[in-house]
Simulated scan of single mutants.
Amino acid sequence: MKAAYLLVALLAFTSSVVSAYDPSPLQDFCVAAKERDGVFVNGKFCKDPGVVKAEDFFLHVEPGNTDNPLSAEVTAVAVDQLAGLNTLGISLARIDFAPKGLNAPHTHPRASEILIVLEGTLYVGFVTSNQNQNRLFTKVLNKGDVFVFPIGLIHFQLNVGYGNAVAIAGLSSQNPGTITIGKALFKANPPISVEVLARALQLDNKLIEDLQNNSWYGLH
């Protein structure tokens, strides 16, 4: 009998823990507001099901324009581009690379990413957290190859072939977000203190100021 009571108590405890668990965030932040100030669900209002059309689940994606400082372009297909993705927990992106094109080191704070190469040859990699000694995992991918980038980790892709390259990335969030490392550090608005960056990166103040004056291009 004591065992039965113990089992019931354990089930009650675990169910209360599960029900109290916060859902994964779908936007950068959500400042608490009084009810009269507005209510959002996953950052979006839901359309009346009676007026939903097939077009709400459809989007045509053109090749990206790679005429930019990184010679690459990411064309996102997230909830802001395709309304039918709302609440489904998935999105994707088409990544076009000119020769030597780079998708610079960045993170997706809300999604893991699975990448498949459609054309060309890419050098890809990701860096683990401090807890795992910041290990670098890299691979050269060719047409048809697949690689996974775990959620939140810094990763990149570089076209190392002789021609253009194209890849498709699937992401485990309707709004994965992108933080381009260089742009976030040196083009924060307002700027991060020169002293903070100089001490953190072990560089002199003048170099930090020069870096902050650069144009940092970040792909979406």
Rank of each mutant, 00 (worst) to 15 (best):
K2F: 14
A3S: 12
A3E: 14
A4N: 10
Y5R: 04
L6Y: 11
L7G: 05
L7W: 07
V8D: 01
A9I: 05
L10M: 09
L10E: 08
L11P: 08
L11T: 07
F13E: 07
S16N: 11
P23I: 11
P23T: 10
S24C: 02
V31C: 01
A32E: 13
A33V: 12
K34D: 09
K34I: 05
E35D: 14
D37Y: 02
V41I: 12
V41E: 02
N42H: 12
G43A: 06
F45S: 04
C46M: 02
G50S: 04
G50I: 01
V51D: 09
E55H: 10
D56C: 11
D56H: 12
L59C: 13
H60F: 15
V61T: 06
V61D: 04
P63W: 13
T66E: 12
T66F: 02
T66R: 13
A72K: 10
A72C: 07
E73G: 01
V77Q: 02
V79G: 03
Q81G: 14
Q81R: 10
Q81P: 14
L82V: 14
L85K: 00
L85A: 01
N86L: 15
L88D: 03
G89N: 12
I90Y: 01
I95F: 08
I95D: 07
D96S: 08
F97G: 05
F97Y: 15
P99S: 07
K100T: 11
G101A: 09
L102S: 15
L102G: 13
A104M: 04
P105K: 00
P105R: 00
H106M: 01
H106Q: 10
P109Q: 02
R110M: 10
R110W: 04
L118R: 15
L118P: 03
E119S: 04
T121G: 03
Y123R: 13
G125M: 02
S129N: 01
S129E: 00
Q131D: 12
Q133T: 02
N134K: 00
R135S: 02
F137N: 00
K139L: 14
K139T: 12
L141M: 09
L141A: 09
N142W: 01
G144Y: 05
D145F: 07
V146E: 04
F147C: 10
I151P: 02
L153C: 00
H155M: 00
L158K: 11
N159C: 01
Y162E: 08
A165M: 10
V166A: 11
L171C: 06
S173P: 12
Q174M: 06
Q174L: 05
N175F: 05
N175M: 10
G177N: 01
G177V: 02
T178C: 08
I179L: 09
I179N: 14
G182S: 13
A184C: 07
K187V: 09
K187W: 07
A188I: 07
A188N: 06
P190T: 10
P190K: 03
P191V: 07
L197H: 15
L203C: 05
K206D: 12
D210S: 11
N213I: 14
N213A: 09
S215R: 11
W216F: 11
Y217K: 14
G218S: 04
G218N: 06
L219H: 03
L219C: 05
